[in-house]
Amino acid sequence: MTSAKESIASLEDDFNALSVRDRLLLLLEFSDNLPDLPARYSEHPDLLERVEECQSPVYLFVEVEDNQKVNLFFSAPPEAPTTRGFAGVLHEALDGHTVDEVLAVDEDFPNRLGLSEAVSPLRLSGMRAILRRIKRQIREKLV
């Protein structure tokens, strides 16, 4: 399996290779393909943490398997495709990687996807907020 670092590098390459308009369409793909919550979370929305910094509602839950592997779960409505897209990119970049790798991810990487111009810096700050909350949940869950 590729490392989180490699996943992020390849996401950065994918986005930056595209025109500004096509970067938006790629973000839309991530929004469309954001995995649904498994029943254990969709039936217990109280377990999820709300990301307040995002303009549209997004909820997240982080599982740390055996103190080692990070599993990410997100929920955001289809009327909030930008936020869903951010969640989808983070899922692609980080899901299934190790605790150490995820905690080592540069919190500035959302700024390197070439999306500032496409979605505006203010909106992009929501994606950094999701990343910070993922890391915080991991730290809280380590035994």
């Binding site: 839309l28 929004s31 303009q55 549209s56 009327e79 495709p81 930008t82």
Partner: peptide, 9 residues
């Protein structure tokens, strides 16, 4: 829209 991607959906 408020959401920059909503049009694309």
């Amino acid at each position: 829209d408020e959401d920059v991607l909503l049009y694309e959906t």
